[in-house]
């Protein structure tokens, strides 16, 4: 990318806007800010950003509605900001097309990591070939359907592989329970989180050094899962 990526931040807290503008500008991003949803939507329409960072608690419009409005005409990545108590809003926003979320208060490394993942995913939609996904000792070859850990083959069942492949293809991004269940088990099983819980446990046992403290297949409390791969 020749010009610096453009980030639009929509949040009604002036302190947050100030901090994010300072930090993101420092990190060589072009930053635009908006304190209200209407203003943000207008700014996005006037000059399409590469990423939108959107607070779910805006005074003039429901954040989920903002997601939906943006998704009507653009696929640009949306990262939503929410509080710990707002799991349902987070999930709703993700289901309405948001790409990722951060719980306030968040560390700036976390935010930058999410931004990098979102940018990579946005750019990868054009580039086709999938190289094997690496996460520490784990290598997942999506094309060849093979998984190795420390160079040794890991035997996975068909569903386990399907689940891992979906997580790995979306490495770094949060995936909601619903989206994983729909993708791996089918829409009729979208509410059966117990399948997901059990299969994630199986996968962790086979792949993680300590299944109780996973390093790669991470739980996003109340929301879903995230696969952490090497950058």
């Amino acid at each position: 990318m020749s010009s610096p990526p453009h980030i639009l931040v929509i949040d009604d807290e002036p302190q947050i806007l100030r901090a994010l503008r300072t930090i993101l500008t420092e990190k060589k991003f072009k930053v635009t800010t908006a304190a209200r949803a209407e203003e943000g939507l207008a700014l996005a329409a006037a000059n399409l950003p590469d990423i939108v960072i959107l607070d779910l608690g805006l005074p003039d419009m429901d954040g989920i509605e903002v997601c939906a409005r943006l998704r009507e005409w653009t696929q640009c990545p949306i990262i939503v900001l929410s509080v710990r108590e707002g799991e349902r809003d987070k999930v709703a926003a993700l289901d309405k097309g948001a790409d990722d979320y951060l719980t306030k208060p968040f560390g700036i490394e976390e935010l930058l990591a999410r931004v990098r993942v979102a940018l990579r995913h946005a750019s990868r939609t054009q580039t086709a070939p999938e190289t094997p996904v690496k996460a520490g000792p784990i290598t997942i070859d999506l094309a060849w359907h093979t998984v190795t850990r420390d160079g040794e083959d890991v035997k996975l069942t068909a569903t386990e592989f399907k689940l891992l492949a979906y997580l790995a293809a979306n490495r770094g991004r949060v995936l909601t329970h619903r989206s994983i269940l729909t993708q791996v088990w089918g829409p009729e099983d979208a509410d059966h989180t117990e399948y997901l819980r059990v299969y994630v446990r199986q996968l962790r046992k086979k792949l993680e050094a300590d299944p109780e403290r996973p390093e790669y297949i991470l739980t996003e409390p109340g929301v879903g899962y995230r696969f952490l791969a090497d950058e």
Binding site: E85, E194, R197, R201, R213
Partner: peptide, 30 residues
């Protein structure tokens, strides 16, 4: 504090789902 006030007002209704206990404990430890 927020939890307490929600507990007091009866708004802290559990959103139950079938969960794996080790996963919950694991993410707390992490």
């Amino acid at each position: 504090l927020l939890d307490m006030s929600r507990l007091e007002s009866g708004a802290l209704k559990p959103q139950r789902q079938w969960n794996v206990l080790s996963e919950i404990i694991g993410s707390v430890l992490q």
